[in-house]
Amino acid sequence: SEFQINEQVLASWSDSRFYPAKVTAVNKDGTYTVKFYDGVVQTVKHIHVKA
């Protein structure tokens, strides 16, 4: 599913667990740039983002 900029989502971290994050960019290659609550910004594949 498509997510929008500033949408609150759950994004997987390197430990494969999902954490609350905010979408900061929707990228043309189908990835999302997300910002976790601790301030870390990461680009993740769409399969690693869920509502």
Rank of each mutant, 00 (worst) to 15 (best):
T43I: 11
S12H: 10
A51I: 09
T24G: 01
T31P: 03
I5K: 04
S16R: 08
E2H: 14
E7D: 15
T24L: 15
V41L: 08
Q8T: 14
S14M: 14
Q42K: 15
F3W: 09
S14R: 13
S16D: 13
N6P: 02
K35E: 15
A51M: 08
T31W: 07
N6S: 05
S1V: 10
W13A: 13
D15N: 09
T43C: 07
V40D: 11
V34P: 00
T31A: 03
G39E: 03
N27L: 06
D29G: 05
H46M: 11
F3V: 05
T33F: 03
N27A: 04
H46C: 13
V9A: 02
Q4F: 07
H46L: 10
P20M: 06
V41S: 10
T33R: 05
A21P: 02
S16I: 07
A25T: 07
K45R: 10
Q42S: 11
S16Q: 10
T43K: 11
K22G: 03
V26C: 09
Q8I: 15
V40W: 12
S1N: 10
T31Q: 02
Y37C: 14
W13I: 12
E7Y: 03
T31V: 01
W13C: 10
Y19F: 11
A21V: 03
E2G: 14
A51C: 10
H46N: 13
D29C: 03
A11E: 03
D29E: 05
V49C: 07
F18A: 00
V23M: 01
I5Q: 05
A25D: 05
D15V: 02
V23Q: 00
I47L: 11
D38T: 14
Y19M: 10
L10C: 15
V34R: 00
K28S: 14
S12G: 10
V26G: 01
A21W: 03
G30F: 06
S1D: 10
S1T: 12
I5P: 05
D38I: 06
A21N: 04
T33A: 01
G30T: 03
D15T: 03
Y32A: 01
K35I: 14
K35C: 12
